[in-house]
């Protein structure tokens, strides 16, 4: 691994992975505790429409995807607020429509065709240094907003009705956080691809939630976990000459299943201990409890 870092593209890949971990750990925690993984998947997929628009009209990639992801985020969030019981259908529709628009517009664009695979799995080994600056900026903004609104974020995620009674501008903050999710997705997809974004947004916070005592702790654990998945994934990809994005996802998946197995062991042991103490105590009290 150390000798691999002599290559600039390897160093860039490592930094990109670490910045993605920072953003995903913080944003992913918000997404997970609010049960927005599906909505986030919808936003991520709908941004493909933005790639098509950018290509077809010859505008910079960033404007097309940012426009689509922000638009999708606003519409989906508004629908989720208005009609929560039907929002999943609506998200599914926008998800598909966004991708279809992207594919059709790329079909219609003359000449050059964007590779769908690089959109899905990213190209972390080909991250240009310029993108690292964008990600640094995004990471700083995400952290600043989260720290400033930390208490509000806890309140609207944990008990939105109570937050509203306290005068917290619930809708405004919800849109603000979703806009943050949308912008983060755009920059992270560029380097790690859409499937890795969803994996990094959901797996590390899911594992972290079980061990964290606070939302902040959950964010820190999620960032560390996703950094570990990124580094080990990159290392495996380098050693075995595999696709880096897919390797990182498999590392995260391994972490996911290991944590499930540990949970199972712990709950079994607890049950056994409880059964044992019941067996020891019941003759004495005779009540069977």
């Amino acid at each position: 691994m150390i000798e691999a870092l002599q290559f600039e593209f390897m160093r860039n890949a490592l930094f990109a992975g670490l910045f993605a971990s920072l953003i995903c750990g913080v944003i992913g925690t918000f997404v997970l505790v609010n049960r927005l993984v599906f909505l986030t998947g919808g936003i991520a997929h709908a941004t493909y429409g933005g790639i098509g628009v950018a290509l077809f009209f010859g505008i910079p990639y960033v404007f097309g995807t940012l426009g689509f992801s922000l638009g999708a985020a606003l519409i989906m969030t508004a629908v989720t607020m208005k009609a929560p019981q039907r929002s999943d259908t609506f998200i599914g529709v926008l998800w598909a429509v966004g991708m279809a628009i992207g594919i059709i517009l790329i079909d219609l664009s003359p000449g050059y065709n964007v590779d769908l695979m690089s959109y899905l799995f990213g190209s972390i080994l080909a991250v240009p240094a310029g993108d690292l600056w964008w990600m640094t900026g995004m990471g700083a903004v995400t952290l600043a907003v989260t720290i400033y609104f930390y208490r509000d974020m806890i309140a609207i995620s944990y008990d939105v009705e109570f937050a509203r009674l306290r005068g917290v501008p619930v809708h405004l903050l919800y849109f603000l956080f979703m806009a943050l999710v949308a912008v983060s997705i755009v920059f992270i997809i560029r380097v790690v691809g859409l499937i890795l974004v969803i994996a990094l947004l959901s797996i590390p916070p899911y594992i972290a939630e079980k061990y964290a005592k606070s939302l902040g702790a959950m964010m820190v654990i999620a960032v560390i976990l996703s950094a570990v998945f990124n580094i080990t994934g990159l290392w495996v990809a380098y050693m075995l000459d595999l696709t880096s994005g897919a390797s990182i996802i498999l590392m995260a998946a391994a972490g996911f299943f290991i944590s499930l197995a540990i949970d199972l062991l712990i709950s079994r042991r607890r049950k056994r201990a409880a059964a044992q103490s019941r067996a020891e105590n019941s003759p004495a009290c005779g009540c069977g409890l």
Partner: peptide, 26 residues
Amino acid sequence: INRSFPISVIDVVLMGRLRHHGSSRI
């Protein structure tokens, strides 16, 4: 209330002081 939410007792109670002075700071 969402039961699996990672939150300490003090953080729950502090929600009661949100916007007490007009800001989100505690």
